[in-house]
Simulated assay, not measured.
Amino acid sequence: MTNNYKFFKHKDCEYYPCHKVKNDEKFNCLFCYCPLYFLEQCGGNGKFVDGIKDCSACTIPHSENGYDYVVNKIKEVNQTKRK
């Protein structure tokens, strides 16, 4: 089984890459908008500016292992809410 569902690159996007990275060959566009944005403690290095979360310095969802990180974080949050 392949892991193709975990990685997507959209080089034709006018914003590609939307973050400064060392190697854009491993830049993952799957989570163009981070599903963890709603979490105050998402594990990334976002910051709050005038009450708005600024994730422009975070590349976790765009990293090679971003899919696994995001899915595991969602599972973690769901487990916490069930207790």
Rank of each mutant, 00 (worst) to 15 (best):
K9G: 01
C58H: 00
K26I: 15
F48N: 12
D24L: 13
I60L: 13
C55H: 03
K6G: 00
F27V: 01
H10Q: 12
P61Y: 01
E76T: 09
A57S: 06
K20T: 09
L39K: 03
C55F: 02
K26F: 14
H19I: 04
N65L: 12
K81Y: 13
K47C: 09
H10E: 11
E64P: 01
E64M: 09
K9Q: 15
C29F: 09
Q79S: 11
K20E: 10
N23P: 01
H10F: 09
L39C: 06
E76P: 02
C18D: 10
G44F: 01
L39W: 05
C42A: 12
L30Y: 05
I74P: 04
D54W: 03
D54A: 00
G43L: 08
Y16Q: 10
K81H: 09
V71K: 14
Q41I: 12
E14K: 15
T2P: 02
T59V: 10
N4L: 15
K26A: 14
E14V: 12
L30D: 04
C42F: 10
L36M: 06
F8Q: 15
P17Q: 12
I74G: 03
K73V: 08
V71M: 13
G43T: 09
I60G: 00
C29K: 01
F48P: 04
D68M: 11
S56E: 11
C58A: 01
K20Y: 06
E76R: 11
V71H: 07
T80E: 15
A57V: 03
D68G: 07
F8S: 14
Y69N: 10
Y37F: 15
S63L: 06
D68N: 14
I60F: 05
G44R: 02
C32W: 11
D24G: 03
M1T: 13
F8E: 15
D68A: 14
F38A: 08
K81N: 11
V71N: 03
L39D: 01
T80S: 13
F38G: 06
P61E: 00
N4H: 14
T2H: 08
V71G: 01
K6N: 01
N3K: 15
